[in-house]
Design a protein around this nucleic acid. Structure first.
Lengths: 340, 340
DNA sequence: ACATAGTCTGTGCACGTTCACAGAATCTCA
DNA sequence: TGAGATTCTGTGAACGTGCACAGACTATGT
């Protein structure tokens, strides 16, 4: 008969105090790096901590400190995001990096259904997190309302919904779109079209606006085809329709890399060479960009940077600083490859 | 001068008790759905909870209950995983679904550096989580050792490192590879090659073994080309070399969809039609599979199912059940598309 | 020698909950 | 009626920590 090893009680600050022959208070001071503790005591306590394997109990600490040292990372519509949006992983990573160097823990809160909405709402109200990073909030989002009501330090990645004045980080879709279109014009293309996508979202509308900015008076609405989603198949359809309408086209700005990949496919079908007959540029610098044949020229989305900036903003608010309601916009370098 | 709204103290169980005219104990019983409370008291308490907006304080609860109601989701090598591995998102989602319906919170612990290793180790030792799901652990992994030392309920997605006897969920790479190879043989192909990948990992070695199983005595080592990574470019290289060595080849099993996509590219270069001249099958049913031209026949990895199964296993251990050390293997349906 | 400032240490309380226990009230059955 | 079971309620203790406070000890200057 094997003896079941007794699940040993975890060492507490009291055990350390006894071991080191001092009081709880002094141990606490050492653990929290506070002044006014003698070198002798510090050494004894550090040895005792090591010996008994002491790790502070977070629940007790949270209870007395009234904070959790955790930040929520809220993601909506995970199915489409995790599978389609290559940026989300980078944002997650960037946020995690910044939070963990500040000794905060990142808690993923994934909203997949209405039940999840309730659960997350309860979680936020329960004081489990000291702040939140919200990715891709929807219009009329219950979570957004709760965050406001609790006055929880928060930051959105992308524009906050319902035109609210809340802190956010993002990129300037409009000027980025303008920049890459200008670059495409600079290669000598004369008839440049756009496959616009997701015009119901800020990002989609802004990319179209930037395209228009770049072309100025030469902008021709007939050369814009719009598709509902940032998706490969939408790109194929959009490109086909565009080619039908404007067979003499020699340049295309696709609203995302996935759309651009679809466009390349349609161009191949139609027997056009890229970049010979038609120059193509995308947006996002996602995994699609390198997979395409030829590799895409595109606008780089600094996903990790966005995550880091979002985390820094929350941390600043946690330190009591006033958030910048105007939003933080990150640079988007253009990556020039062979497709244009 | 605007008055700063005083950050109101959160309602406690005591406030509810006063409001409802009962004691803390009775409120606690209502909150935790315990028996032995009169209908009258229950109604009064529920009204009081609503009125004062009471939400239980988790820190206090964790402190006295000695558990956190949270499960860690540990991911190694996030850069390659989040960007390359389409399965990780599905696993995350599946695990989250199962955990949240059991009222457990999932905490993402991303290990990106040695510093992260320390931080996560501290986190686990600190009792912040009651169990862990570990994705893609490395050989000789410090986290694995800590989990063992703490006897923390745990489950690996994929085989545990160092041949340890620890619970895991996964797929049967060998029999899946065998099945899809047999299916390819069934289409009448006579000279079938394989681009094996990542032979240093269990998954890679098993897929090769399955291929060998399917061919039996007809297996020809000269028709196997191996590449280091599950990557597109590796697929291109592997296919080129394979074609050089065996120009009469009429079927290829690629060790992953990314590799298969690379193979398609190389076949196109070489002027072979797919599936006309050569039938190609992949593995994973990742986003690559549908993007390819033609779409890939492949083995479906039930990513969400793996996440759910992993979560269920941890939850079962948390309920005190003995884990199944043999591991749980999920079914992998074959998805037949146009590439073979 | 004494006052004063500076350095260090120990103690009790609070945080908000659960749980064991005691006791009150009601019901059941001889 | 009274003993015993059943249902319900309130109370004190405990979980492990940080913090305010009181007090002891040491150095400095008069």
């Amino acid at each position: 008969m094997s003896t079941i090893p007794a699940r040993r009680r975890r060492a507490t600050i009291h055990d350390v105090a006894v071991e080191a022959g001092v009081s709880r208070g002094t141990v606490s001071r050492v653990v929290n790096d506070e002044p006014y503790v003698s070198e002798q005591a510090r050494i004894a306590i550090e040895a005792a901590i090591e010996k008994v394997g002491y790790v502070p109990n977070n629940a007790a600490r949270s209870l007395v400190m009234q904070r959790s040292q955790a930040v929520g990372f809220i993601v909506h519509e995970p199915h489409s995001l995790f599978l389609e949006d290559p940026n989300i992983g980078g944002i997650l990573l960037g946020a995690n990096t910044a939070l963990s160097s500040a000794d905060y823990q990142m808690v993923c809160l994934i909203i997949d259904s209405d039940r999840d909405n309730d659960r997350v709402a309860r979680y936020l109200s329960g004081g489990f997190v000291d702040g939140v990073i919200i990715v891709s909030a929807r219009q009329n989002d219950p979570i957004t309302r709760i965050v406001e009501k609790l006055a929880l330090p928060s930051v959105f990645v992308g524009h906050p919904p319902d035109l609210r004045q809340l802190p956010f980080v993002g990129i300037d879709n409009r000027s980025s779109a303008r920049a890459i279109t200008e670059r495409l014009i600079g290669t000598g293309r004369k008839r440049i079209g756009m496959i616009a996508a997701a015009l119901d979202r800020d990002s989609g509308a802004d990319r179209l606006a930037g395209f228009r900015d770049a072309l100025g008076p030469r902008f021709d609405p007939a050369l814009v085809e719009d598709v509902p989603l940032y998706a490969f198949s939408a790109g194929v359809d959009g490109m086909r329709r565009l080619l039908e309408r404007a067979p003499d086209l020699d340049g295309v700005f696709a609203a995302s890399d996935a759309v651009a990949a679809g466009a390349l496919e349609a161009l191949r079908e139609a027997g056009r060479s890229v970049p010979g007959d038609v120059g193509v540029v995308g947006f996002d610098d996602s995994a699609w960009a390198l997979r395409c044949q030829p590799p895409l020229s595109t606008v780089h989305q600094p996903a990790a940077g966005l995550g880091e900036a979002a985390a820094e903003s929350v941390l600043a608010q946690l330190r009591g600083e006033e958030p910048d309601l105007g939003g933080i916009l990150l640079d988007t370098p253009i990556v020039w490859r062979d497709s244009a």
